[in-house]
Each structure stands twice: as C-alpha cells, then as structure tokens.
C-alpha cells in the first residue's frame, strides 16, 4: 500500500503541484481553517472541518457565464469558457465528497451546466477518513459515514495512530493521482485507524415522511425563530446550489455572473409585482428544510444534506439543521399518524 507520513502531507501537495495539479487543501488563513489553493510553505490542517466546503471549487461563489463588448447601444457577444484547471481536492471530508452526487444530479438532471461539468471533470477528489468529530457532525444520520467513499477518487486513511496516511486509489483518476505523487509516497504496510464513531441523532426517513404531510404545521414558527435571514448556512453548505444571475457592466464591457444565492434571503423569491411567496423567515426556513429533506428525496431519490454540520458551525444565531431534524423526528414519535 501507498503511505505518507502525517507530517509530510505538504510534500504530497508539492509533488502534485509539480505534476500540474492545482492543489486545494485545508489551510489556516487568518485564524480560520479553510479549503483554498495550497501554496508552497502552507501547512495542511486536517484537525478541523474547514469553514467552507469543496463545492466552492466546482460551483464558485461568482462565475462569469456571459460576456459582451459594449459600444454605445450595440453589444457583441464574446465566447466564455469555464475556468477549469486540473485540480485535486486533498484532505477534504467524506461529507464533501458525498455532496457530489447531488450537485452532479442538479446540474445535469435535464439541461446540462457545462460550467459545473468542466470543473467536475477536472477534479480528483481525495477525502480523508474522519477519526475525530465535533458536536455538529451528523453524517451518520443522513446516510453518510466518517469513512464513506462515495464521490471519492482516492481515500486518505489515517493509520498507525495518526502518524501516517494510507493513500488508497478508488478510480482511474485516483490511480493517475498516485502516479503523479511519485516518490512523495512510500510503499509499505500500516494499520488503518478506526473511523470516529458518530451516533445517529434522528431517523432521516421519519423526517422526510413528516415533512411530506406537514407543510402547514404549527412547528415551523418555533423551528425558525432564531433565524435572522443571512446566507451563511447556504454558502457553507456542500449541497446548496441556488444561484442568482446578475449583469455587471462598465462602459466597454458587460459580464453576466452566476452568483451564489440563498433561499434564506427575503429578496430571493420577491416578484417584480411586489408579491412574495415566502414573505417571512418562517416560510424561508421551511423551504430550506423541505428542499433538503423532502423535495430532493422526492425528485432525485437523494438526501439534500450530508451532515457536515457547517451550517450550525457558522450560524451566528445558533440555528442547527440537526437539532431541527431531531425535533421533527421527535414529533413523529409523539404523534403516531392519524391519517390513512
């Protein structure tokens, strides 16, 4: 098996960068661990779940999807190509990789979004098995696991008490990456450390079932009281994919941008005529929960949440998706269905 010492991850990153990969890895930046393009000298920080998710490198916060030269009242379209450098997502989390199934589906279920697809094809995904978790982690409640390999091209498995990693290829892309890593990896034997145990907090199927018949429920105002309506949760979420399309122009040029957006914002659904289907935070938060745990399961037979817990970690108002799901699941135990 291929091994690398735990303190040599930067050597692996350097080898991959030399081999032509853009290396994205968790690094500390102004006191916050985030996934960003690794640069020579930066330490790779595997101890904390990064504040951002891997989606940033497939569906960036802001992306140019159209460009025109302007000349007075005339405009001339210019060709726009996705910016999709060959990239490795190194030491991301299994909950990042698990989100790819949903993103792949949404951006391809009917029309195909080639901006997403070009980046997706250029990406090699190398998650790290989690041997630690915090209070916000709940992957096991939504069908995931700290050592899940869904969406992964290769896995980094902590081994021998965290002193080294086993790098295990799972796909052709993963094999190519191992080849590119070359001498940064050593051949040898090591015992994989057990993944962290994460207790299940709720029965996701019960949540989905409750949601299917409780669009109108007295519980929604209580579940959404703390939400102040920012986009922090959606932007940190590995599966949230809502976006806005906006033009930005100078006198000579206009670009059309695909910008992240969130169903938590009041303007998200506001009609030009003034009507807003979701006029308050209760309706907006309900949509967020419904989308992840009812609409996506109904439409795509997937769960719209990978249990990474980032939403709760970043929320300035103490909202927690896992707490909300647990309260909903409790509700199903309290009130056996009267219908049918």
């Amino acid at each position: 098996m291929k091994l690398i010492d735990a303190n040599k991850l930067t050597a692996l990153a350097a080898a991959l960068a030399r081999a032509g990969y853009r290396v994205v890895a968790p690094v500390e930046d102004s006191g916050v661990v985030r996934l960003k393009e690794w640069a020579e000298g930066a330490a790779i920080r595997t101890g904390a779940v990064p504040v951002n998710s891997a989606k940033d490198f497939l569906f960036p916060p802001s992306e140019i999807i159209g460009r025109w030269d302007l000349d007075g009242d005339d405009f001339m379209p210019r060709d726009v190509q996705p910016d999709a450098p060959k990239t490795v997502l190194l030491a991301v989390r299994p909950c990042d990789a698990a989100a790819l199934a949903l993103l792949d589906t949404v951006f391809n279920w009917d029309y195909k979004d080639d901006f997403y697809n070009a980046r997706r094809q250029a990406v090699t995904v190398v998650p790290m098995v989690c041997t630690a978790a915090d209070e916000q982690c709940f992957c096991t409640s939504v069908g995931g696991a700290p050592d899940a390999t869904a969406g992964a091209d290769a896995m980094l498995r902590p081994a021998d008490g965290g002193t080294r990693f086993i790098l295990e290829p799972l796909t052709d892309k993963g094999n190519a990456l191992l080849d590119a890593a070359g001498l940064a990896l050593a051949e040898g034997e090591a015992a994989a450390d057990p993944p962290v145990e994460i207790a299940r907090r709720f029965d996701v199927e019960a949540v989905t079932e409750w949601l299917s018949r409780n669009f109108e429920s007295d519980l929604w105002p209580a579940l959404s009281l703390a939400c102040l309506g920012c986009g922090a949760c959606a932007y940190a979420c590995p599966t949230c994919h809502c976006f806005d399309i906006q033009d930005e122009a100078t006198r000579r040029e206009s670009v059309r941008l695909k910008n992240w957006d969130s169903c938590g914002f009041g303007l998200f659904t506001l009609h030009a005529g003034g009507h807003n289907p979701r006029p308050d935070q209760t309706a907006r938060w309900r949509n967020r929960v419904m989308h992840k745990f009812s609409y996506i399961p109904e439409r795509f037979a997937l769960v719209g949440c990978t249990g990474c817990g980032r939403c709760a970690r970043v929320c300035g108002a103490g909202m927690s998706m896992s707490e909300v799901c647990r309260l909903i699941a409790d509700e199903t135990k309290k009130a056996p269905t009267h219908e049918s």
Partner: peptide, 15 residues
C-alpha cells in the same frame, strides 16, 4: 486580502 474572503453571505448585516 481580508475582504477577498467575503462570500457576501451578509451574516454581518443579519447579526
């Protein structure tokens, strides 16, 4: 450099 990290989530405004 500081503002480069801003994702425009407007958590500051909400808080």
């Amino acid at each position: 450099e500081q503002f480069a990290r801003c994702t425009r989530c407007y958590a500051c405004r909400a808080a």
